[in-house]
Simulated assay, not measured.
Amino acid sequence: MKKILGVLAVLVVILLGLSACSSSGESDDTVIDVKGCFFLEPGDELKTAGIDDENLQNGEKYFFVVYDVINDSDKNIEISGFDDVVTVNFNGTNEYTQTSGFYDTPMLCEFLDYCGYQRSEEVEKMLGGCEPIRMIAPFIINEKDMKEDVTAEIDFSLSDELTAEKEITSEDIQTISLFDEVFKVEDDYEAYQVAQSVPRRAVLAKEYLDCAIMSAGEGNVAEVNLLMLQMKYIFSTEFPLGVSVGKYTASKKLPIFDINAVKAVHPDIADEVESLISDLNYFYDGVHNNNLTVNEMNDRYESVSNTTAAIKEFYHIS
């Protein structure tokens, strides 16, 4: 009898060991940590911005998984560049592979380019002992998958060393109406959103300035005044709406601009942002006070162009 019990005890130990091995390829030094899962149910702001023009079938919606990848080992890890390294299966029925975003989903692509999170195919190698990398996996799913009692299994196969399976339920999934709400995984959602919106604001402000200059050449004073006002408000605390990091979307749900948020999150670019704001205010005040001079206007325009380029470079926007 004792012999049988001893054999059973060994068998249990072996089975437990096998179970642990099959559930995840993570070690103490390599970890995949899911920070949040989000189902996008577009609100009016996204609809106005053109979300319905995305090349999705009727009933398809976006689902996002935000996760951290940690490599505290000494080994450099090669990350696979294929989309199928991250998949999600809903309710044991429908399985989806993350999407890279294509030309026919422009709003998704622009958000992914500006959000500050990396996609697995962008990380060719993760150096040993480097800082954790925050990644995002976007999916196009059937909205019917999101049942009240939904369950899902997320499978990560980033490399031989970085594999994991994570099970989630409805309690783990947040429904959002704007792309930017995935930033709720951050310690300070509002500060991160404002700081990450800087390159989008800079690009928009310069576009408004360029259009104003063209309208001035055509003698359209009313158009110039409107464009100058839009340009000024992009970086103004007086503007009552926040600006999305993706394709231009303004919303009361997003935080208004605050230079202190930029200084807290991205202090290395704060001086350039303040310089850009100063140049934009010069054009706005000059138009309204009719005291622009050609030489200074040319210098300020060059400064706007250079600063906008520097901001895009800092945020790795091509």
Rank of each mutant, 00 (worst) to 15 (best):
V262C: 10
V262A: 07
K263C: 08
A264I: 01
A264Q: 13
V265D: 09
V265F: 09
V265A: 08
V265C: 07
H266C: 13
H266A: 10
P267K: 12
A270K: 05
D271G: 07
D271S: 09
D271K: 04
D271W: 06
D271Y: 11
E272Q: 08
V273G: 02
V273D: 05
S275I: 00
S275Y: 02
L276P: 00
L276W: 12
I277L: 01
D279I: 00
D279L: 09
D279C: 11
L280A: 03
L280F: 15
L280W: 09
N281S: 14
N281I: 07
Y282D: 01
Y282C: 05
Y282W: 08
F283W: 11
F283L: 01
F283N: 06
Y284F: 14
Y284Q: 03
Y284P: 06
D285P: 03
V287A: 08
V287G: 06
V287R: 07
H288V: 06
H288S: 13
N290G: 14
N291W: 03
N291I: 05
N291P: 03
N291Q: 06
N291M: 10
L292W: 05
L292Y: 00
T293H: 13
T293I: 09
T293R: 09
V294S: 15
N295C: 08
N295W: 06
N295Q: 13
N295H: 05
N295F: 11
E296R: 13
M297W: 00
M297Y: 01
N298W: 12
N298I: 13
N298P: 00
D299P: 03
D299R: 12
R300M: 14
Y301R: 08
E302Y: 15
S303C: 03
V304M: 04
V304T: 06
V304A: 10
S305C: 14
S305V: 15
N306Y: 14
N306Q: 15
N306A: 14
N306F: 08
T307H: 11
T307E: 02
A309F: 08
A309W: 01
A309N: 06
A310H: 05
A310V: 07
A310L: 10
A310K: 10
I311K: 01
I311G: 04
K312T: 10
K312S: 11
E313A: 10
F314R: 05
F314W: 04
Y315G: 02
